[in-house]
């Protein structure tokens, strides 16, 4: 039959995923709106004083990012599972972890990257000092690929369940804790005037580790879910 190489298959799948996702823009926009609305709620709840808002801004933005990652995670594999594409993915003559990494990348392009771009708006709303905006965006840029990869593991595990929402957050949120801690610490250390270099390097190391191992877990989980 055809002798499509792994790279051709990968790019075909990524292009297809992008096209499908861009057809359904609300799925991309809604998690972003969710973040903005959560960020809006906090000043209303704790008062608009800059001292308290500035202190909790990083935490609020990051927690909102974690929750929105959970919100958007269903669309990673759900439709493919329902229309049988996931089974086709397993049968393709290409290593499944590579294809999983492709799907994770597309998911990040459409959920993580917009969040990074949205971050200054959230920082503005929460009165985060402007010196810390850059580092906040940097932690989001490094951290959101990890979010996409971990949610892909959870989504692949629960895709055959139909109603995985609450279970998914139970599985994933504890695993996000190191990310939350280091990202918040990086911004915090910039705010107090010390170097965030170490934290950013730690985050980058974690991201590489996650992006190496998570596709393997996703592939194993897809194999379990499909049959």
């Amino acid at each position: 039959m055809n002798n499509a190489s792994t790279w051709q298959l990968l790019s075909a799948i990524m292009r297809r995923d992008l096209a499908v996702a861009l057809r359904r823009r609300s799925d991309i926009i809604n998690p972003l709106l969710f973040v903005v609305i959560v960020v809006t709620l906090f000043p209303l709840a704790v008062g608009p004083g800059p001292d308290i808002l500035g202190r909790i801004a990083t935490g609020v933005i990051w927690v909102a990012a974690l929750l929105s990652a959970l919100l958007g995670s269903e669309r990673l594999f759900r439709d493919d599972f329902l229309d049988g594409n996931l089974e086709q993915l397993v049968l393709l003559p290409a290593p499944l972890p590579v294809l999983a990494l492709g799907k994770i990348s597309v998911h990040w392009l459409l959920s993580g990257l917009p969040l990074v771009i949205l971050a200054p708006l959230c920082a503005l709303l929460l009165k985060l000092p402007i010196d810390a905006w850059g580092i906040l965006m940097l932690t989001l840029l490094i951290g959101t690929p990890m979010l996409s990869a971990m949610t892909a593991v959870g989504a692949a595990l629960t895709v055959s369940l139909g109603r995985g929402g609450a279970l998914l957050s139970l599985l994933l949120l504890p695993l996000f804790i190191p990310l939350l801690i280091f990202a918040a610490a990086a911004v915090e250390s910039t705010l107090v005037g010390t170097s965030a270099y170490g934290h950013v390097l730690l985050l980058a190391g974690l991201m590489l580790l996650t992006l190496t191992l998570a596709p393997l877990a996703v592939a194993a989980a897809i194999r379990v879910s499909v049959n």
């Binding site: 593991v153 595990l157 629960t158 695993l175 801690i181 974690l206 877990a217 194993a220 379990v224 879910s225």
Partner: peptide, 21 residues
């Protein structure tokens, strides 16, 4: 099998969580 995969994902994360906490 799903629980087994999750347990393995968890055991990779436990030292990281421990250290970070």
């Amino acid at each position: 099998k799903a629980a087994a995969i999750l347990a393995l994902v968890g055991v990779v994360n436990v030292p990281i969580i421990h250290f970070s906490v």
